[in-house]
């Protein structure tokens, strides 16, 4: 066999040591390796490397993390660590708020009037540093097309800069029952999440506005879409936002 053919065999030899080859093909590889010193060396090297890699101990989840997740998932914690337990959310969220958010997440499903809790929980979740925005742009003509192809509906996007609500980006939120297009606006240091999805055939009976866990929300419907604005902005200014939008 020529060296070119041998180099084509490389991925097969690798697949063989990875246990991916059916018996017949593995037998063919074995037959070739037996007769070909360079492929035999390759196989030997791969096996040796694999063996050495597996001597490294891959990390396991810290007990405190396991306990926190078990507890959060409603099971009796296997062991409650005395110390060293990390707050659930990094970056400026108090543990209390974070736990409240987690409780909301688990409480939302059974009741129809939990929608405010769902959107508030999604808002809090989004405040984590790693999940604020999927598309960062102050330009509605960038944000709107971003949703196209990612969603079966096209959310309206408005520029409210003139009303002092700056568009800063958007993201997708996977809420129970539907995916929301979320637009993010900013006033001063306050972020406003505007969740948008098509109005379902059976309209929800959620209140038009209120607050949960210190976050205010406004809900309205227009053009076949349901809107939820959620923010830590005071309710007066959030009402301004809702009115500017409507």
């Amino acid at each position: 066999m020529t060296p070119e053919q041998c180099s084509e065999l490389a991925l097969l030899i690798q697949a063989d040591i990875d246990g991916e080859l059916p018996a017949a093909e593995a037998a063919n590889v074995a037959k070739h390796v037996e007769a070909c010193p360079s492929c035999a060396t390759l196989q030997q090297d791969l096996l040796e490397l694999s063996g050495r890699i597996r001597e490294i101990r891959s990390p396991t989840a810290p007990p405190a993390l396991k306990a926190a997740i078990a507890e959060r998932l409603g099971a009796p914690a296997p062991r409650r660590p005395a110390a060293g337990r990390r707050a659930w959310f990094a970056g400026g969220l108090s543990l209390g708020v974070a736990l409240a958010a987690s409780l909301l997440v688990f409480a939302w499903l059974p009741k129809a009037d939990m929608a405010p809790d769902v959107v508030v929980a999604a808002h809090i979740r989004a405040l984590q540093p790693s999940h604020l925005m999927d598309v960062v742009s102050t330009d509605q003509h960038t944000v709107k097309p971003w949703f196209a192809g990612r969603l079966p509906f096209s959310p309206p996007v408005k520029d409210l800069t003139a009303q002092d609500f700056k568009l800063v980006g958007g993201r997708l939120d996977y809420l129970p029952g539907q995916t929301a297009a979320t637009l993010i606006y900013q006033r001063r240091q306050h972020l406003i999440d505007l969740f948008v999805w098509p109005t379902p055939p059976t309209p929800d009976k959620a209140p038009a506005n209120g607050s949960r866990e210190g976050y205010n929300f406004f809900r309205w419907q227009a053009g076949g879409m349901t809107f939820w604005a959620v923010s830590d902005l005071n309710s007066q200014e959030l009402a301004q936002f809702a009115n500017a939008w409507r």
Binding site: P62, L65, F89, F106, S130
Partner: peptide
């Protein structure tokens, strides 16, 4: 890594 796992659990729930 801990934050990632926690965040992933939340996302997974969604």
């Amino acid at each position: 890594a801990e934050d990632v796992v926690q965040d992933a659990i939340l996302r997974g729930l969604s």
